[in-house]
Computed example of a mutant assay.
Amino acid sequence: MADKIKLLLAAVVLGGAVAAFYYFADLMLFVRVVVLLVAVGVAVAIAAQTAVGADALAFLRSALMEVRKVVWPTRKETMQTTLVILAMVTVMGLLMWGFDAFLAMMVRTLTG
């Protein structure tokens, strides 16, 4: 029950911040954005105190650990892969254009 109350409070804080962002449209945009970001931070902090929030934070931490383990391709590998993809797209485009032209010719022949 306490988790539901905390999540509801986080939703109210977030909804109030969005409403205030539009209600105080005459204030500087920078001020409104800063207040909105602070409110989002407060809402996330409140939501993180729940079981669902703790699970979400644990998932994000493990996802960041996995991203650090990724072996990213070098610039050379990226360029080679991009060129292969561009070549295949070009070849497939030409094949599809030729097949379409053939079908159009067949339809013209059949329909007179």
Rank of each mutant, 00 (worst) to 15 (best):
M1R: 12
A2M: 12
A2N: 13
I5F: 09
I5R: 12
I5V: 14
K6C: 03
V12G: 06
V12R: 04
V13N: 05
G15Y: 03
G16T: 11
V18Q: 08
A19R: 08
A20F: 03
F21S: 06
F21C: 02
F21M: 03
Y22H: 12
Y23E: 06
F24E: 04
F24L: 14
F24Y: 13
A25F: 12
D26G: 02
D26H: 02
L27P: 00
L27Y: 12
M28E: 15
M28Q: 12
M28G: 15
F30P: 00
V31N: 04
R32D: 04
R32C: 04
R32Q: 04
R32A: 04
R32N: 12
R32H: 03
V33E: 06
V35G: 05
L37V: 12
L37M: 15
V40E: 08
V40P: 01
V42S: 02
V42H: 01
V42R: 02
V44E: 13
V44K: 05
A45D: 14
T50H: 07
T50C: 09
V52D: 08
V52P: 00
V52E: 12
G53M: 03
G53Q: 04
A56P: 00
A56E: 07
A56K: 06
F59C: 00
F59K: 05
F59R: 06
L60S: 10
R61P: 01
R61M: 06
S62I: 01
A63Y: 07
L64E: 10
E66R: 14
V67H: 02
V67W: 08
R68E: 15
R68C: 03
K69D: 03
V70I: 14
V71W: 02
V71M: 09
W72C: 03
W72D: 01
P73D: 02
T74R: 07
T74M: 02
R75E: 15
R75T: 15
R75S: 13
K76P: 01
T78N: 11
T78H: 07
M79W: 12
M79A: 13
T82A: 09
L83Q: 15
V84L: 12
L86K: 06
A87K: 10
A87I: 07
M88F: 10
V89F: 09
T90G: 11
M92I: 15
L94I: 15
L95Y: 10
W97R: 11
W97C: 03
G98S: 12
F99Q: 05
F99Y: 05
D100G: 13
A101E: 14
F102S: 09
L103N: 08
A104V: 06
A104E: 15
A104S: 14
M105N: 14
M106N: 12
M106F: 08
V107C: 01
V107Q: 04
R108Y: 06
R108V: 05
T109P: 00
T109R: 13
L110W: 09
L110A: 14
T111L: 11
G112H: 07
G112E: 03
G112S: 11
G112M: 04
